Measured scan of single mutants.
Amino acid sequence: ENVVSAPMPGKVLRVLVRVGDRVRVGQGLLVLEAMKMENEIPSPRDGVVKRILVKEGEIVDTGQPKIELG
């Protein structure tokens, strides 16, 4: 899985990584606000952040790609 998608609709509060960052499985990639709760979205695997496809403040839909890992 190279693309991390939104598990639920919500607002991107914070992006916790930058392009080029090495990430580990379970590491937080971003914080999504859904139903007035903050949810940290974890990396599904070890890898390197290739692209960030969302911006802080953006509203995302379920299944929308957010971060691409290499």
Rank of each mutant, 00 (worst) to 15 (best):
E56Q: 10
R22C: 14
E68K: 06
K66L: 15
P65I: 11
G10E: 04
A6G: 06
R22F: 14
I41W: 05
V23C: 07
R51T: 09
V48F: 13
S43Q: 01
V60N: 02
E58C: 07
V12G: 01
L16N: 05
V23F: 02
L30Q: 00
A6I: 09
I67T: 02
S43D: 02
N2C: 15
K66V: 15
R14I: 10
R45W: 13
V3G: 05
L69Y: 04
D46A: 11
G20P: 00
K36A: 14
K66N: 15
E1L: 14
M8F: 15
G26N: 07
R24I: 12
L29Y: 00
G28M: 11
E40A: 08
G57A: 04
A6M: 12
E40W: 12
V4R: 03
K50H: 10
K66F: 15
A34K: 03
N39G: 06
L16E: 03
P9C: 09
R51V: 09
E38I: 12
V49Q: 01
V4S: 04
P9A: 12
V31S: 02
G10W: 04
P65S: 08
R45T: 10
I52Q: 01
I52T: 01
I41G: 01
T62L: 12
V12T: 02
T62R: 14
V12L: 03
V54A: 05
S5V: 14
P9I: 07
I41S: 02
R51C: 09
D46V: 07
E68S: 07
G10P: 02
E40N: 08
V3F: 15
E40R: 08
L29H: 01
P65G: 11
A6Q: 04
P65C: 08
V15F: 06
G70D: 14
V15N: 04
V15D: 06
K50F: 06
P9T: 08
V23R: 00
G70A: 14
G57R: 02
V48T: 10
V4L: 08
E33Q: 09
G57P: 01
Q27H: 05
L53Q: 03
P44M: 06
G70I: 14
D21Y: 01
V17R: 00
N2L: 14
E33H: 06
G47C: 05
E68N: 04
G10S: 04
V12W: 00
G10Q: 05
V60W: 05
P7F: 10
L29T: 03
E1C: 15
L30T: 04
V25F: 12
R22P: 11
L32W: 06
V48N: 04
E56P: 12
I52D: 03
G47I: 03
S43N: 02
P42F: 12
D61Y: 15
V17C: 07
V31D: 02
P7E: 10
V3E: 06
K66Q: 15
P44G: 04
D46R: 07
G10F: 00
G20L: 05
L13V: 12
L13E: 06
L13M: 07
L32M: 11
D46H: 08
P44D: 07
Q27A: 05
M8Y: 15
P44R: 04
R51M: 06
V23E: 01
M35Q: 12
G10A: 06
D61I: 14
K66D: 07
M8T: 09
E68F: 11
L53P: 00
K11D: 03
S5A: 11
L32I: 14
G63T: 06
N39K: 13
L53E: 03
V60K: 01
I52A: 01
V17D: 04
I52C: 04
G26T: 03
G70Q: 13
K55W: 09
G57M: 06
R22L: 13
L32Y: 09
V49R: 01
E38Y: 08
M8P: 04
G10I: 05
G70T: 14
A34Y: 15
V3W: 15
L69Q: 02
E38Q: 11
E1R: 11
V19L: 09
G26Q: 04
I67W: 03
E33A: 08
T62K: 14
L30C: 07
D46C: 10
N2W: 15
Q27W: 01
E1G: 13
R51G: 07
V19K: 06
V60Y: 05
Q64I: 07
G57D: 06
N2E: 11
R51Y: 05
V3H: 09
A6Y: 06
K11F: 08
G20Q: 04
Q27C: 07
M35K: 10
A34C: 14
V4G: 04
V4W: 02
V54M: 01
T62I: 13
G57N: 08
K55A: 11
I52W: 00
M37D: 08
V12A: 00
T62V: 13
M35F: 13
P65L: 10
E68D: 05
R18P: 04
K50W: 06
G57I: 05
D61N: 13
E33D: 08
E58W: 08
L30G: 01
D61M: 14
V54H: 02
Q27V: 06
A34W: 15
N2D: 12
D46Y: 07
P7W: 10
Q64Y: 07
R51F: 04
R14F: 03
V25S: 11
E40V: 15
L13A: 05
Q64H: 09
R18C: 12
M37S: 11
R51E: 07
L16M: 09
V4C: 09
N39V: 15
K55P: 01
L69E: 03
P9V: 07
K50I: 15
E58T: 08
V60G: 01
K36L: 13
V49H: 00
L69V: 09
I67C: 06
L53K: 03
E40Y: 12
N2P: 07
K50T: 13
G47K: 01
V60L: 07
P7M: 12
L29R: 00
V25N: 09
K36G: 15
V25I: 13
R14Y: 03
R51D: 06
P9G: 11
K55V: 12
N39C: 15
M37G: 13
L53S: 03
K36Q: 14
V19I: 11
N39D: 05
K55Y: 11
E40C: 15
A34Q: 09
A6W: 07
A6P: 04
E1T: 14
V3L: 13
I59H: 12
V25T: 12
L29C: 07
G10C: 09
K36S: 14
I67Q: 02
M37A: 11
E56W: 06
G63V: 05
V25E: 12
V3M: 14
V15S: 01
I52Y: 00
Q27I: 06
N39M: 15
P7H: 11
V4I: 12
E1Q: 13
A6K: 04
D46E: 10
E56F: 06
Q64L: 06
V3N: 06
L53V: 04
V19F: 03
P44Y: 04
M37C: 11
E56I: 13
E56A: 12
P65T: 08
G57V: 03
L13R: 04
G10N: 03
R45G: 07
P9E: 06
R18D: 11
G28T: 15
I52G: 01
D46W: 07
G28H: 09
P65D: 08
E38M: 10
V19E: 11
N39E: 11
P9R: 12
L69R: 02
R51L: 07
A6E: 04
K36W: 12
K66P: 08
S5R: 15
V4F: 04
P9N: 09
V3R: 06
N2R: 10
